[in-house]
Nucleic acid binder design. Sequence first.
DNA 1: ACCTGAACACCGTTCAAGT
DNA 2: ACCTGAACACCGTTCAAGT
Lengths: 189, 189
Amino acid sequence: MSLTCAEILTSALAILDEFGLADLSMRRIATALGVQPGALYWHFDNKQSLLAALAGEVLGTLPEPGDLRGGGIAIWAGELRDRLLAHRDGAELVSAVLAMRLLDPSPVDILANALMRAGLPPTDAGAGSALVVHFVLGHSLDRQGYAQSAQLGAAGPPGPDPDEAFAYAVALLEVGLRTAFGDQGSLRQ
Amino acid sequence: MSLTCAEILTSALAILDEFGLADLSMRRIATALGVQPGALYWHFDNKQSLLAALAGEVLGTLPEPGDLRGGGIAIWAGELRDRLLAHRDGAELVSAVLAMRLLDPSPVDILANALMRAGLPPTDAGAGSALVVHFVLGHSLDRQGYAQSAQLGAAGPPGPDPDEAFAYAVALLEVGLRTAFGDQGSLRQ
DNA sequence: ACCTGAACACCGTTCAAGT
DNA sequence: ACCTGAACACCGTTCAAGT
């Protein structure tokens, strides 16, 4: 039985969880599968597209955000954060793939479309969505970066509870978005 | 005259601007300076600390945010964005260094301290500051990632004006922050 | 003090050749 | 169709030895 893309991704995810993104090399994946490095290039064009597929695996199919005028944003943002934090360096991986524009559909698109369907004009929906997703990514990146530097010894004081800070920040975003919904145009000069 | 840290950083910044972060290797910096790769390790412990110093160079000394109840956040966020965009892959560099916690003082700390001095409780100031800085980083990362993929040919449609989207998002943040200032505690459940 | 020379242990990627 | 073997052009880092 020959190698499949799914097997490669499973192996890659295991290496990611155990050793982190910096140690996730094509050669290491190949070794874990008992195969030559070149074999991977039959199934993926290059490392970038393998990482893109892996990011898709980490994110899964995100839910459609609902109740956007109520607490729907907080729930959706929390779900996104949980998925990013579920794997070592998940936020870094998704950020990198997102920056390369290889994630389809991107979380930004999903939320932006939902906001548009809820009545926000396209530019506002795009900006609001970017705001939410970039914060969640930055927040998760920060947490996982902290975990990494804490493991390395040189970590500062623990600081405030990150879950609390997350909830507060999302609440602040919801206030802004409610204004956008309630009084369209009031945020533009 | 012997090599100085400043010369190394100047050379590194030139390589960053011309070839990007992916091509910024210790060996390439050394070659540009007409020196052996090992020579750099007399001046910097490792690549990470060189990148940290380079990120400091890119950011410079950020201004103290002022008029936090008015448009001060927008001005400060715009300044941060401009500095990130002033060098190729500036946002990616700063994000990476920030995630490693090697940036002192970090932009998050600067804004958080200003928000505290303006009257916000520590947790709220930290969360609000993280919100602003993570958005600016994500936004800039996105713009520079788009520029990169556009140069590579495979770019989607141009989309809405990024400056407009930035202004809208920051305005939304200011609405939320004004609520935090005006009616403290109203964002917490 | 500051740098060279040379090595060590890695990378991603390609591609003829095998099966 | 799918993989091996072997190479190419790179990395970051270390460290004796030179000056």
